[in-house]
Amino acid sequence: MIQMRHITKVYEKGIQALNDINVEIGRGEMVFITGPSGAGKTTFLKLIYAETKPTSGLLFVGGKNVSSLASRDVPYLRRRIGVVYQDFKLLYQKTVFENIAFALRVISLPSAEIYKRTIKVLNIVELTHKKDAFPHQLSGGEQQRVAIARAIVNDPVLILADEPTGNLDAGMAANIMNFFMETNHQGTTVIVATHNKEKALKMGTHVIHVDSGQIVG
């Protein structure tokens, strides 16, 4: 699903976020990217959904060369990837329902289909009763679940989650993790970035540990 060959990312002012990363992530894998804050986890994910370009190296996502992807092809790549952002990136003037449906509107699905799929994922994240609420009326954990619902609503082949349990209590965090495991069991490749190395190791799956932009361990 993902191949990184000698990927290096240097931001402006010479800040080196990633240095010579070589990674292979297979289809249907569940992978944790761990590392302390500032290690380069978010940058790793951003490269995959083409939010930023690698400074050097080759990156393939689903067989597509993302390191040299034309701008006009970026939207189509993103439609196959569901991203849960560290800061949620919800629209605060739209309802929960509209926030989730948003990801389907941009691909011009028929209304009935949008409604059906949105209600389905609202069920999955157990937020049906809050569908007409606005994000600021929700708790951090609920907002997190809206972000997850939006990420999965168009059945992506790849889910990227950036610290998805960051502001959740232990119980809710476990719920969310179980949910990702569940989705993964159904065949979706899942990559979760987290600074919590112990928890990741406990999940017993593929763990990539980064520090200062390099893979360690």
Partner: peptide, 16 residues
């Protein structure tokens, strides 16, 4: 601005 950024992130084409 935030809305436009999110539209781009969920895969909206510039024309959309």
């Amino acid at each position: 601005q935030d809305e436009i950024e999110i539209m781009k992130l969920v895969g909206a084409t510039p024309w959309f």
